[in-house]
Design a protein around this nucleic acid. Sequence first.
DNA 1: ATCTATTCCTGGCTGC
DNA 2: TGCAGCCAGGAATAGA
Length: 263
Amino acid sequence: MPELPEVETIVRDIAPRLEGRHIQFAEVYSPLVLRNNKGSLSEALAGRKIVTVGRHGKHVLLHLDRGVLVIHLGMTGKLLFNTEPTRHTRAIFSLDDSTLVYDDIRMFGSLEWSAALPERIDRLGPEPFSITDTEFAAALRKHRTSIKALILNQKLIRGVGNIYTDEALWRAQIHPKTSASRIRKERALRLLNAITSVLNEAIEHRGSSVSDYVDAEGRKGGFQLRHNVYGREGKPCPRCETPIRRIVVAQRGTHYCPKCQRA
DNA sequence: ATCTATTCCTGGCTGC
DNA sequence: TGCAGCCAGGAATAGA
């Protein structure tokens, strides 16, 4: 499940292999992964030059000489170079000197060409590294929903998903069901630090491979070995040895230490 | 306006 | 061994 660190890893890897190249042609095998270009994505992309490659939250952006290709990897999306198509290959992009293959088992991901960054993506919250302590604390006080649900909401900050939310809440010692509005300045600051530090460490380790995440070369990340709570139900908390508990918050599997993270 | 529940999708796992 | 049934979850959407 690619979140910010996984997408950042992919973008850093693929940027030098894409920038300056042209999309000679694109082929779509599963229109389900298209958003608003049903039937016209290939035409929009044919002959376009890839100028720069970037990341916006969990989105990969290919800035073209005309418009932008927005790629969201969803749960199981992969961008791979020069692999043979499989039954999960949803699209291919034939470039000057390589072929970029988009695989996506569950098809929660999406491909979208747009003349400019689509509004709904442009309107997402800031990168976690950009928001200030004051802004973050003020935003928390405005919402009565659980802190877990609020961090997952891409309109607050963009790029953080289920894994890194659980990891950050463990680091900050905050119970996932805590009402966001009840988190005052000091704890909010601790939480924002936890979020940015866990994201940075995950980037250093090339992301987490818990189910089937791999980078553009098919390599797994290494940060899953450093998870403290995610996917560790019943195992001892690294801080206090209490067994990690798994509950459901905001319709998501949620892992926390019942002793370190009191309600 | 804010929040919650539902929907999409398929491989992998569980239990009979 | 086979297979039905359930689960994982990002984000759009519908509903409260």
